[in-house]
Design a protein around this nucleic acid. Structure first.
Lengths: 338, 338
DNA sequence: AGACATGTGTGCAACGTTGTAGAGTCAGGA
DNA sequence: TCCTGACTCTACAACGTTGCACACATGTCT
């Protein structure tokens, strides 16, 4: 069937162990032996059997990336970055979609599928603070996002509070005093929505602007449709506002569309800012000012942390680390001075 | 370390083979033995070692999905569907990104990474007709898209010609006679661009409308930026047109934005239609009329074909099949009667 | 010369699973 | 009674790889 070490060994006139040694760059192999083996490998087109190697070594060479849904552009772009980063360190990526559902997230953490991968990069959405204990797992795990703090795991995420504060201040600096929020989550403290709201509040306070809950709209999800619905609700409330901070780009784009249909000019009447810097933010009409949260940095660091943990092989001398990526505000056409 | 068949066997007081038999639903096991084994499995939390199973059986349980780029919404949504479909038949999906680069595509076809997966679902972009021979590989392969015909492989794709013809006729039926194209590929015949152009030409001919190459704009890629650039070029040509057919949604959205900035009203002055039915087509301003190419059907059929091939295990009695998914036109706001 | 380190290569066992062949038991029919 | 076949379970040997222990050669230092 397939070419194995045995075939190569026979062709090169050495033992299979020597072939194995050559492949694994074991140093004590004579140059000419090494050459002979390499030649035989070349000639026969030998490719190592990953299953056998995994069985022996306990490593599979694959990492899992669990996220809510690839159809959400943010996660698609994140997956892109993670796959790139993983490829650079010679790992495959297996993607699992949770739909943001708590049950599926918990299931996934202890699924037999974990055996197939060396580690997991996990972006939870449905799980809450109470579920932190579930994260104490026996395999390398890196968490993205921040629904759960103080877990026993490495953590890579964006500077939600600072970035949201910066976004709000960006609007305030351009003369906006009534900044509406689209995408808040009722009572949430530690999720992205909670943190971004905190940044918003900090900015308001620093500027001496009173908080008005009437211009804060809650949504369950962060899809375009939710942004649109939220904006309809906001308009129905009939309170004044001169800017909108969408807690992500899709929310902002959905909201912006409804605003425009309702006859508001963006950015003149209402400035709009988003969060994520999706590719499409560049091509909306008007193009969307947004926060670039440092996605590729997040992917890069997550993969690096995970492979470090994998290589440390459970020797947990390094305590859980938290990495916060650099953000920056990308100014486009949807914001202007009042 | 980890719980193995041996541990379960000891706990249940049977041989490991019996445990294996229970797990694999071998029928000749007494009910009470089966129960005892199941109990032991439950108690110990046994999970089979996939590497060992792969080594023994030659199957890995994973399939690879190779596509240009997850950042392109179409492929992200396709990947979403493929992962869903694969999960239903108990397979993992490993995603590989080619960037649409021919070299990387060819490399990927013979990469040692193929050993890690039972089969490949491949959406090539850079490869051309001359590369058909490279597709004659020793593992199960299903091709998406149609840059290469008459290969020795299963093929799942959309009805490009009919759908493009239908889209064009949709515009013509609404009184448009000057339908511009955004996204054609110079000289291409068998790719999506070539086929969609053919559908366009068929529709023109059927309606007795002369072809005017001045309103056909070529692009290299199909990103938003290309749509925007193409539309600027079209406007610069200063020829009349009353509709735009973007060969995909991102092109159409990019083009629509430039149109609007230039002062044209969509759909009154210019109607715009896209292709793909991305989620965001629903939330642009105006929302985009487009062709839904049957993405989930494509994913479903591709996974099913591949698993059939995998299970047939090389017994190639079934000849290469071609499946064309159903399409339908989704009418939204970007098109109207002249 | 002897002791010792270093370089080069090998054989064996093991990773955890499943296919094959076969041993033992039991019921039913000749 | 014996034979046959079905049922139930088991031992053994693989799948292809790598860690370990060791054998042997060669060089280096007392």
């Amino acid at each position: 069937m397939s070419v194995t070490l045995h075939d190569v060994a026979r062709a090169a006139g050495v033992s299979i162990k020597t072939v194995s040694n050559v492949i694994n760059d074991y140093p004590h192999v004579r140059a000419d032996t090494r050459a002979r083996v390499h030649e035989a490998i070349e000639q026969l087109g030998y490719q190592p059997n990953l299953s056998a190697r995994s069985l022996r070594s306990g490593r599979t060479g694959a990492i899992a990336l669990a996220l809510p849904e690839l159809s959400l552009s943010y996660f698609a772009e994140l997956a892109d970055s993670v796959i790139e980063a993983a490829e650079r360190v010679g790992q495959f990526v297996i993607i699992e979609q949770t739909g943001g559902d708590r049950e599926r997230e918990l299931q996934l953490l202890s699924s037999w599928r974990r055996k197939m991968t060396d580690g997991l990069i996990f972006s939870p959405l449905g799980m809450g603070m109470d579920d932190a204990a579930h994260l104490d797992v026996a395999y390398p795990l890196v968490l993205l996002g921040e629904r759960i703090f103080d877990g026993p795991t490495d953590h890579v995420t964006m500077r939600n509070v600072e970035a949201a504060r910066a976004a709000t201040e960006f609007l305030i600096a351009r003369g906006r005093r009534r900044v509406a929020i689209v995408g808040a989550h009722e009572g949430e403290v530690i999720g992205s929505a909670g943190l971004r709201l905190r940044g918003y509040l900090e900015a308001l306070e620093a500027a001496g602007i009173p908080y008005d809950e009437r211009i804060v709209v809650h949504t369950t999800l962060w899809h375009r449709a939710n942004g649109a619905t939220a904006m309809r609700e906001l308009l129905a409330r009939d309170v004044e506002f001169d800017a909108v901070f969408g807690f992500n780009d899709t929310l902002a784009l959905g909201a912006m569309r409804v605003l425009q249909v309702a006859g508001y000019r963006v950015p003149e009447d209402v400035s709009v800012i988003g969060f994520d810097d999706l590719d499409e933010a560049m091509y909306s009409l008007p193009s969307l000012t947004t926060v670039n949260p440092g996605r590729s940095e997040i992917a890069e660091v997550a993969v690096r942390s995970l492979t470090e943990r994998i290589e440390a092989n459970g020797d947990t001398e390094v305590p859980p680390r938290l990495h916060l990526a650099q953000f920056r505000i990308v100014e486009r056409e949807s914001t202007a001075t009042a």
